[in-house]
Design a protein around this nucleic acid. Structure first.
Lengths: 168, 168
DNA sequence: CCTTGATTGTTTGGATACGAACAATCTAAA
DNA sequence: TTTAGATTGTTCGTATCCAAACAATCAAGG
């Protein structure tokens, strides 16, 4: 369990504190459960898959994006992975130091940097991702199969609604 | 939109790279959308509600837990809020410095520390939480009302499945 | 009473993340 | 050609977060 108290205890305290305050409890449940789930799943995946390879969460996300897109511009990686370009610089330094990826300047535009995967990086992902997906299956197994698309679509709609247009 | 590419583009690339690899795409969608949504919603709530009061995410979570439970032990706060006791120490220092909460040693057990809210902290939450909940409503409005409990329950089940027994 | 082991909050050291400032580069208008 | 503004990746300073080590306290058994 998450907290030291049961759900029912928590509900009672919340109801007391918020009595007469016109609160949307259903919406509250959606967001609070969203954060708990994301945190729990991230920890689970880090421990069950990434820790053995000493990979941080963001390092794995970057590896994934580069693996899928191959020869991708760094600005695109930042957008896909969902964090700032400052953070990306550090992660790429680490990955490059370990020999998983390489950087080269774009010939068409001297400002851009293109990231590629090394054979070593590709090998890692070919080994790692199936294990990762096995754990994703475990996570999704908490849901009835018919509910999985409903949850996935709902989360995607939430993302689209709340995500600002221009990131970085 | 999240990335620089459309969903359809991404799907095509993913399918190519993972051809013949026996991947559960539905489970992959659940988890990847989970992280995107959590990150987007957190950013949205920080910008739309917390930034005006210069409150970090964890500071708000701690305020919330203390507000709901009143005179709560720090170990319980950490468990409810979902982060380490080391982090909690720093957050409580900040909140105390701003006059939102206070600490006192437990009389029953000299190891424990009890956290209480000040009148100033209570006032802040009474003003802040309704605004916060309004934005939670906005977030949940991405879902059809009948789907909101399905998503909330699904996320709770995912949390229970993946969260380890003893935290901290 | 004394000792051993467990528990709790804090401190410390290191990893991670971001905004702002910066240099290099491109674009477009004069 | 020259100049002014935009864009991109990196650097720098700062904030956040955690695991491990630590000191204080409690509980239990002799």
């Amino acid at each position: 369990m998450a907290g030291a108290h049961t759900l029912r205890e928590t509900e009672r305290h919340v109801d007391e504190r918020l009595a007469g305050m016109d609160i949307d409890f259903q919406a509250m449940a959606v967001t609070s459960n969203l954060f708990r789930a994301a945190s729990a799943v991230r920890n689970h995946l880090e421990r069950s898959v990434l820790a053995a390879h000493d990979l941080s969460w963001s390092a794995f996300v970057v590896l994934w994006v580069v693996w899928i897109w191959e020869d991708i511009e760094t600005r695109e990686i930042a957008a896909e992975a969902g964090f700032s370009k400052a953070t990306l610089t550090g992660v790429l330094n680490t990955l490059e130091k370990r020999g998983y990826s390489t950087r080269k300047r774009s010939k068409d535009d001297g400002r851009l940097v293109i990231v590629s995967m090394t054979a070593k990086g590709r090998k890692l992902m070919e080994q790692l991702f199936p294990l990762f997906n096995k754990q994703e299956q475990f996570v999704a197994s908490a849901l009835a199969s018919k509910n999985q698309p409903i949850v996935a679509d709902g989360l995607r709609k939430i993302t689209e609604l709340t995500e600002p247009a221009g990131e970085n």
